[in-house]
Design a protein around this nucleic acid. Sequence first.
RNA 1: GGCCACGUGGCGGAGUGGUUACGCAACGGUCUGCAAAACCGUGUACCCCGGUUCAAUUCCGGGCGUGGCCUCCA
Length: 467
Amino acid sequence: MTLTLYNTLTRRKEPFQPIDAGNVRMYVCGPTVYDYAHIGNARPVIVFDVLFRLLRHLYGAGHVTYARNITDVEDKINARAAEEGVPIGELTERTTKQFHADVAALGVLPPTVEPRATEYIRRRDSKLDMVRLIERLVQRGHAYVAQDHVLFDVASMPDYGRLSNRSLEEMEAGARVEVAPYKKGPMDFVLWKPSKAGEPAWPSPAGIATPGRPGWHIECSAMAGALLGEVFDIHGGGIDLVFPHHENEIAQSRCALGTSVMANVWMHNGFLQVEGEKMSKSLGNFVTIHDLLQEWPGEAIKLAMLSTHYRQPANWTEKGLIEAKRTLDHWYELTADAAEGAPLCADVLQALQDDLNTPQAIAALHALRSEAAKGAKPAAACLKASARLMGLLQLDTGAWKAWRPAALAIDEGKVEALIAARNAARTARDFKEADRIRDALTAMGIGLKDAKDPATGEIVTTWEVKR
RNA sequence: GGCCACGUGGCGGAGUGGUUACGCAACGGUCUGCAAAACCGUGUACCCCGGUUCAAUUCCGGGCGUGGCCUCCA
């Protein structure tokens, strides 16, 4: 079974063939750091982490390079910094740290490299940077200078629009935007623009005297080219990036470097709704990763996310989180003393190799759960190993059980005391009192479980917060 | 207005031209002092209308609905 991936460029699933099996290269568009990342931002982070893990499994951990950028130069950042009255660098530094904390808590692997856009505007070393790319585009006749801007000349690229599957005529017909008067063609986009006082600025390329800053798309072309080479294997991101961002990245990279493709495979994750509605600040259902992590363990968020196939539209719900958390509780329980390093479940691997069919992989994990529940030790070990391929069951069971919501308004000592009192009443066969205490705990939102220790036959009572 | 996805049982969510997805919930049972948890078992589906076919939830066309892009956006 070989890895098959859906390629937006060809609109079908294709067998994956790396350019160099010794160094498989993937680029994923990372966050613009001006605010907390939301649950929609978490989707590509989680999805492409699974792909990263799978590629490491298939080609060897040292043979995959995964680049995910930090966009730290952008007009939204400038606006937010001005709004908060803080220096831009302070805002991007703080937001980057928040992002790192969030994704670490989600239990995803750090990418191999995490370049920042500002490091690739003008470099002192010989690596590709934005200014060099822009100069080359101008030299090759794919870009022009107008009123201190550098614009990409879309008409100079015959197959512009191939990724998003639209023709120039279509786009121009459908355009609802006012076209800046200095553009030669209405779809031409900005590679470089002049900065006003107070805006971040670098010396401009192409003989422009006014200092300026890069357009949005050029950073990814520069970073991907510098770190992964002129042509690489996989480029990923959200489906909303297909146009214009990825289309324009392709145009810049190919026209500047003279290549026929930028990346061989283009992958896009679907959009996400919250409780069946569009996520928006005005609806009040804007969910940040940071907020979710106050109430849910990272792996529950990850499992909830992976229970929908990455290309499918997803509905983010609390019910889904509850389900994911309970599933993991169960899996952790069953794998508490499972051996490490068991062979992977073939069904899980096969599902993942079929365009990351995580729901099917999860179904295979449920089958293992079922066997493990009957006492099959190898199944439990296989469950642990296979779940880890997806970045699940990474903690030890004790650490998982010890997790508590950040704002847990429960006095654990008091709970333990009540449980001890209840058990004393039970031993004395005073079930009326025992049930009274249990009801009191239920009213506090605590659910009890009485289990027999299989070795000693002793009753062990555990508790959890009911949701 | 142009382009593009998606629409599966109470809910979430895979998949397939004819055969069990899976999970949660529900129901029945085992266990339990009673519960909970766990385990065993059961039921329910493929948006509408046409077409192709021996056979369509699965292919094609139309409709309706939801969402995305065309403008910052995962």
